[in-house]
Nucleic acid binder design. Sequence first.
DNA 1: GATGAATGAGCTTTCATTCAT
DNA 2: GATGAATGAAAGCTCATTCAT
Lengths: 204, 204, 204, 204
Amino acid sequence: MRTSDKHQKIIQSAIKVLSRKGFFNARISDIAKEAQVADGTIYLYFNNKYDILITLFEEEIGKIIVHVKQLIDDENDPRKMLEIFALHHLKLMEEKRELAEVLQVELRQSNKFMKEYRNTKFIEYVDIVSGILHKGQEMEIFRKDLLPGIAKRAFFGALDETSRLWILSPKHPYTIEEAAKQISNIFLAGIGKPGVNKTLSKAS
Amino acid sequence: MRTSDKHQKIIQSAIKVLSRKGFFNARISDIAKEAQVADGTIYLYFNNKYDILITLFEEEIGKIIVHVKQLIDDENDPRKMLEIFALHHLKLMEEKRELAEVLQVELRQSNKFMKEYRNTKFIEYVDIVSGILHKGQEMEIFRKDLLPGIAKRAFFGALDETSRLWILSPKHPYTIEEAAKQISNIFLAGIGKPGVNKTLSKAS
Amino acid sequence: MRTSDKHQKIIQSAIKVLSRKGFFNARISDIAKEAQVADGTIYLYFNNKYDILITLFEEEIGKIIVHVKQLIDDENDPRKMLEIFALHHLKLMEEKRELAEVLQVELRQSNKFMKEYRNTKFIEYVDIVSGILHKGQEMEIFRKDLLPGIAKRAFFGALDETSRLWILSPKHPYTIEEAAKQISNIFLAGIGKPGVNKTLSKAS
Amino acid sequence: MRTSDKHQKIIQSAIKVLSRKGFFNARISDIAKEAQVADGTIYLYFNNKYDILITLFEEEIGKIIVHVKQLIDDENDPRKMLEIFALHHLKLMEEKRELAEVLQVELRQSNKFMKEYRNTKFIEYVDIVSGILHKGQEMEIFRKDLLPGIAKRAFFGALDETSRLWILSPKHPYTIEEAAKQISNIFLAGIGKPGVNKTLSKAS
DNA sequence: GATGAATGAGCTTTCATTCAT
DNA sequence: GATGAATGAAAGCTCATTCAT
């Protein structure tokens, strides 16, 4: 078995266990059992419990970034880009539900117990939105009076809260695609230059 | 010292300590020291560590709800109501920064480790937004094709993510009032009936 | 309310609580609640938790001793005396069941946790049997070769173990009187001078 | 060190510590120190403090039962059997004094604080006596009018109380063998059919 | 005398981490 | 590299006892 195999096995097991129990309630032995390795083996690949979480953050968000950027690079219209980002972010709930749960819960508290840790990957992810917004402003599609830090966060927060609730509720009266479309619509209508973006999207 | 005084003292101390360390890293003895009581005294007022957190949630969110509802009741225009909600929610960051931190971080993980706990107060708070949206739709001010569960969450999420970042960053290139105004604007433009809400708000 | 009233009330409450929970599982507050006094009031009458138990031992065994001695003093035949002692000891199970439970359980472990305590009252009680045996030997009714320390303990132990089981089992195929009679019979037959005691008792 | 070694080491250490301090005053750390293991190691072998006591009961009484049954199986005369049981029971005081102390004290209170625990091994041990008595009755050596539950308890109680006192007193005016002989004698004389058992035993 | 809120020492138990095999 | 038994620090919680009222 290659080294990377066990590393990956442990990360994926950690995602499973952490999504179920949360970081503090999860035991190293839970993760080890899930990964079918001995407790001590974990420490051959990670320095400590925190290190598993941090590595998980970096690697998994890294993959997401690569993927989203690929999708967006194929597109030129910033309005389409935002729609793609929204759809992809929400689709994570279905495709990688456990990872999504971990990111939503643990990312928020990670600065409480890992004082020194700056989650640069996460910032990079959210900054994809900034980039899109900036491009839209340059192209005179989005309003110039947008405060960049605000709109970025508002858009991301809208998506994230929606996905948070999606996970909590077992049943949903709408599909992920509808949710993504609606949120994109609201934002595009809200941030678009008057008279410019009315033609793009049709509310589902 | 009256009984209620110690209860309050402990809750307020818990807010301070939890905002700094998070629930799992906070020790009962930390809270006791902050409240200037003995460890055992905590257990005269609360059943266990979780009970402190739950009581904190219920009581503090309860106060916020009462306050926001009062502000909103003085208003008739749903668009104004949303602006008020937004401003008030963000102002919590300044006025009760520590409480805000606790709510943002611990509320998100509370259903991981307190399986049986349903945070009804929190739902009630977010449902204030639903109420406003619904009223706006009835008054034909907001679009009828809004998915109620989505727009509510999107608006709340936008605010919450903004306040989350506000707390994390030491410096801000805009004021809270500007941020509230901008988010309200984006949403009102996004959810308003075409041709109806363009007159209300002027982006700051 | 006279002082002695509360003292008595506490002792009797302690008997109830200790019989149910045992010394270490019983809480001072349990006893206080049962006695309908405040926790602190206990300490006006007793030095500490151990003191309650010791006082309980001394006073209640003292009462039993007085009572048994009265009964025995009316009698001259040592064989009858033993029967009286046996019957009375077992009858305690019915009449003061809770006290009996406390004595059986706590007396046995009291020297484990109260190193300095010598239970003189208890010794005095058991020595009633010695007295009877000695008298029987003097009167040439009981065998001279009895080891005094042994027979006393054997007789008392037989009774005590019988009463212990009586308490544990909810149902019994014999009456207390039958049990007392049988044990007396066995002992009297066993310790009597051959040819002397065969006429006294009829096995029930 | 083999697994079973630590299990045994802990049980034996528990016997030492419990005999000295009693269950409630004994600390897990006392037992761990005595066993020369870390506190946490105890919990690799036992579920909790109670589990140590229960396991101790079951295993040690189990050994005693096996041993006594072997001794008795070599014998046919129920009178001899009783003598063997008496002698062996009392000899435990010398050979396994600490175990004897634990059994005498903790067994009596175990049903107070371990509500669900039925000490079947202990019942099995005492029932060895029942078996002997029954056999003696069948062989027409013991009186038919013996109440089976009574005589068994009386005999066992006589022995146990004797051994209890043996442990408490530092000095003894008689040997264990004499004590066993005397108690057997008393009982055999008391329960034997008139005219049958007079020939067996000579009082020491 | 009576109260009961407050105290804080002390306990059992957990679990991240180590290290001999 | 892999194991998992062993470690021991650390924390939540209890409860006998005190003392201001």
